[in-house]
Amino acid sequence: MGHRKEIQVEIDRRSGFCFGGVKAINKVEEELEKGPLYCLGDIVHNTIEVERLEKMGLITIDHEQFKQLENARVLLRAHGEPPGTYETAKRNDIEIIDATCPVVLGLQQKIKRTFLKHENDGTQIVIYGMRGHAEVNGLLGQTNDTAIVIEGKEELEKLDFSRDIILFSQTTKSLEGFFEIGEMIREQMQGDAQLELHDTICRQVSNR
């Protein structure tokens, strides 16, 4: 018989849920002790953890189901939500348990301020991120859905390089991709148009 080789597996110390996800999970466990609780979308991208919390009583719903709720408690996960979600909650007497990641919340506020400042001057607010992702939907909502979402360099044709551009990023995108997109935009800017970059990527995620 041959010798059995030992395999050593190393787990990166930065693996696992980010601090925003951990914060949201802890909040769920805390709030479930107070009574029934809904969560708008999967609490984290991990089926095992979602099932564990659902066995404890968490009820996961989508946005259509959310609109039908009344007099309920709903937790918003770390990805954040657009303003419309809070407006629906107010109309339907829904108590919001807000577990939005502080990094995402800060980005939402920054984009909102930028939108209000440049709403009428032709500046393009661009978000480098995954179209349809919950976080990106929340960021778009800060601009009344007027921001331009770019998933990659092949979509740069959507931009008008003769007008000012302010570039933000979904917090979980790669730094390399963000700066590559930024440089490609800079090379195509025309006339007096200015490019403003905001590195809004979460380092805990990007360093994995």
Score class of each variant (00 low, 15 high):
Ile166Cys: 01
Gln109Met: 10
Ile166Asn: 01
Ser162Glu: 14
Thr100Pro: 14
Thr100Leu: 01
Thr114Ser: 14
Lys117Gly: 01
Glu81Cys: 01
Ile125Asn: 05
Val149Asn: 12
Thr60Val: 14
Glu81Arg: 12
Leu105Ala: 15
Ile166Met: 09
His79Thr: 01
Lys110Phe: 02
Tyr86Pro: 00
Gly138Ser: 08
Lys110Gly: 04
Val136Pro: 09
Gly152Ala: 05
Tyr86Gly: 03
Asn92Gln: 12
Val74Gln: 08
Pro82Asp: 08
His118Trp: 07
Ala134Asp: 12
Leu139Thr: 06
Gln65Lys: 14
Gln124His: 12
Ile125Arg: 08
Thr146Val: 06
Leu76Glu: 00
Leu116Pro: 03
Asp160His: 13
Tyr128Asp: 10
Ile127Val: 15
His63Ser: 13
Pro82His: 07
Arg131Asn: 14
Glu70Tyr: 09
Ile165Gln: 06
Pro82Asn: 03
Glu157Asn: 07
Glu95His: 02
Ala134Val: 11
Lys153Asn: 10
Asn71Ser: 13
Val104Met: 12
Ile165His: 02
Arg73Phe: 11
Glu87Leu: 11
Lys67Ser: 11
Leu156Trp: 06
Gln109Ala: 08
Ala99Phe: 02
Glu119Ile: 01
Leu105Trp: 09
His63Gln: 15
Glu64Tyr: 12
Gly106Gln: 05
Pro83Asn: 04
Leu76Phe: 15
Gln68Asn: 10
Arg73Leu: 07
Gln65Ser: 08
Tyr86Val: 04
Leu116Ala: 00
Ala99Gly: 13
Gln142Thr: 04
Asp62Tyr: 15
Asn137Arg: 13
Glu154Ser: 12
Val103Cys: 04
His79Ile: 06
Glu87Met: 10
Gly80Ala: 09
Ile148Gln: 01
His133Pro: 12
Asp121Arg: 00
Arg163Trp: 05
Asn92Pro: 07
Asp121Trp: 12
Ile148Val: 15
Asp62Ser: 08
Lys117Arg: 10
Gln68Gly: 00
Tyr86Cys: 01
Phe115Pro: 04
Pro102Arg: 03
His63Thr: 15
Asn120Thr: 11
Thr88Val: 15
Thr60Pro: 06
Val74Cys: 06
Ile61Met: 01
Pro102Lys: 02
Lys153Gly: 01
Arg77Asp: 09
Ile94Gly: 06
